Simulated assay, not measured.
Amino acid sequence: MAKRATVADVAKAAGVSVTTVDRALNGRMRVREETLRKIAEAAHRVGYHGRGLIAHRLNVSLPHVTLGVVLVKGGQAFYRNFAQELEQAMTARPDIRGAVRISYVASQSPDDFAAAIQSLGKEVDALACVAINHQKLTAAVQDLKDRGVPVFALLNDMAQGVRTAYLGLNNMKVGRNAAWMLTRVAAGPGKLAVFVGGNRWHGHDLREVGFRSYVRGEAPQFSVLDTLVNLETRKVTYEATLELLRRHEDLSGIYVAGGGMEGAIAALREMRPPGKVSLVVNELTLDSRAALADGYVQMVISTPLADLSRALVGAVVDSFDGGSGEGAGQLFLEPRIILPEML
């Protein structure tokens, strides 16, 4: 029978005295968090029977942080994956007892976004949101700031000058990258189309600006049609793409700057052979992966959700450790560029 690990074994493995381990076990005197963590790790390594008690003491000594996150379209795989990554990032932090509360907004109404921010903000220590840019949301964020609740904008910036920080992609560069690709892989010079989710999505606006500025300055042989709003829905994108293909025989490429790409893919499959009209979309899903493989999508610009989630949790913790919180901060993450040959 293997020898049962003792307090002395734990002390030796942790590099501390037996007395310190005893304090960690019985709680008669305070043990520093760093020391407590070393003891807990040592107890786990040697298989000490009381390691659960030490882990409990460590957990109790950590600060509790509840992060509220407002997302959109809970039925979309992208946002469900985002929610999972956020929860995993929070659980992985060893220095806090963290929890994530997710609220989904079904529409693009400023009132619905503001209501979600106000409601969830009453129940959490910090809040992050994927939201449109509107003065009603700015007022809601200001109210949270006045109550000491830091607010972080995700993917689309909002409440500039009030929110604590923006975390996401550099959307101007994303739009320029999309234009760079389309103007190089298109079958020939012609017309380009851009879809955005709505007129108040700040990130989509920047992607459109970046797209148009690149074409204007670097590929004047192409022209960009009037921007189409698809409300990030498959149905609207599908119908609008069919109309584009009927009206513009010289359509060379399409960029879907937000959601709804499934509709553009479906329309192209019906109306054009692979590669006849080039397509750039955001985020790798089952639909975009299949379209890449079949030649209907030429590039996917994907958000590194795991990196973004870890960065957000880190920013939240920092905001409680003396962060400035002056509303000017931003963190740009590098997108993942996915091409057909990378599958």
Rank of each mutant, 00 (worst) to 15 (best):
A115M: 02
A114E: 03
S119P: 01
V105T: 08
I117R: 04
S109T: 06
G121A: 08
Y104D: 10
A126H: 14
Q118V: 06
I117L: 10
H134A: 08
V141C: 05
L127N: 09
I132D: 05
A131C: 11
Q118H: 07
I132N: 11
S109W: 06
Q118D: 05
S119V: 06
G121H: 07
Q118T: 10
S109D: 02
A128Y: 05
L137R: 01
D125H: 15
C129H: 09
V100R: 12
Q118S: 10
A139T: 07
A139P: 00
N133R: 04
I102A: 14
F113M: 09
N133T: 05
V124L: 12
L127F: 11
V124C: 12
S103W: 12
A128W: 03
A126N: 15
A128V: 06
S119Y: 09
P110D: 00
A140P: 01
A139Y: 00
I132L: 15
P110E: 00
E123D: 15
N133E: 08
L137Q: 02
A128R: 00
Q108M: 14
D112E: 12
A115D: 04
K136Y: 03
D125I: 14
I117E: 03
R101P: 08
L137V: 00
V130E: 03
L137A: 01
P110H: 01
D125G: 12
A114K: 03
I132P: 00
C129T: 13
S109I: 05
A131E: 04
A128M: 06
R101Y: 11
E123A: 10
D111W: 04
V100P: 06
N133D: 14
I132M: 14
Y104P: 06
Q135R: 03
D111T: 09
A116Q: 09
G121P: 02
K122H: 13
V130Q: 03
A115L: 06
I132V: 13
P110S: 04
A114D: 00
V130S: 03
R101K: 15
L137P: 00
Q108I: 12
S107Q: 06
V105L: 11
S103F: 14
A126I: 14
A126W: 11
A116R: 08
V124M: 13
F113E: 05
P110N: 04
A140W: 01
S103H: 15
A140K: 01
I132G: 09
K136P: 02
Q135L: 04
V100Y: 10
A116I: 09
A128D: 05
C129G: 14
R101T: 12
Y104W: 11
A139R: 09
L120H: 10
P110Q: 01
L120R: 08
C129L: 15
V124T: 12
A116N: 09
